[in-house]
Amino acid sequence: MSSNPTILAKQETSSLLQVEHLTVDYVSIDGSVRVLEDVSISVGRGEVVGIVGESGSGKTTLGLSILGLLDTPPAKVRSGVIVLGGETDLLRLDEHQLEKLRGGYLSIVLQESVEALNPVYKVGFQLLEALEAASKREGKRFNRESAKQEVIRLLEELCVSQPNLVLDKYPHELSGGMRKRVAIAMAILQRPKLLILDEPTTGLDAYVQSRLLGLLRQLNREYGVAMLIITHDLPLAATICDRIYVMYAGRILEEGDAKGVLNSPQHPYTRALVSAIPQGFIDAPPLDVPPGDPPDLKRLPRGCKFAPRCPQKTSLCEASEPLLLESHRGSVRCWLYSDDKNT
């Protein structure tokens, strides 16, 4: 693969977002911790891509680096490029240029929706402001009344009852789930080309979750909004995404078609994620789950990072780390699958 970003970008004209070889450290007095190691992902135009991983896998850091929202320090981008729309390298933009992109081209719904809302303004004011900015960008006239109707319609769509009353409240007066929905509405109103959602469904009831996913799919189908969905919930990702990356300890372990990753996972870690989901009734056998804790980024093993918890590990796995190689279905980073490549 070429390390020259401009050539790469021209080859992949269909991709909206291209992250290449991104490596990020968090530096502190105790030393530096590698949070992302050589991560490459792409999101095509109108494509819905999922990043699935557990805590500490680096998925949130990846989302934040795309928007240039990493706090530096402690974060330090060691290498890599993030190409948007085939030309701009986001990592080389200054704060002013980034601000222009955020909210327009790019929108993010953070895990902590509280952070997305300004505590001193009413919800309605903030939502209308987002819509006004979007209209301005598109060069349309902004009509306050019809804008308000649009906001109300969207909130209703997200199962907010009595949206009129909600608009007249301050963020702290709303419940967590409600704030989340307001934050999502705000991101949608910006009409971005790429919407990044970090754990969009946590804190929402099953019912609201399914409504939200329906709405996101509709947004994707009707307006072609591309999405990057960051979640720990593999089945959820599989129902809405076209493609999925599975992350562990700052690395991509598997990539492939969403249904394929869920139904016939290749990497032992992905298989573990699938079998950890409770399926049967109370008489079902205990869940098949890897022993041990999620990885400690400060003390990662030398070889494959999943090896200490892997039921299929060999001495090779402990000695050296496999590469992310293309397989017949997507790519996988595991010695189990590299044999057929060598022979």
């Binding site: 557990e54 950890a276 869940l287 098949d288 999620p294």
Partner: peptide
């Protein structure tokens, strides 16, 4: 996390 949830559920049972 899902894998941790599975461990805790197993312990509870």
């Amino acid at each position: 996390d899902v894998s941790v949830q599975a461990q805790v559920l197993n312990t509870l049972r």
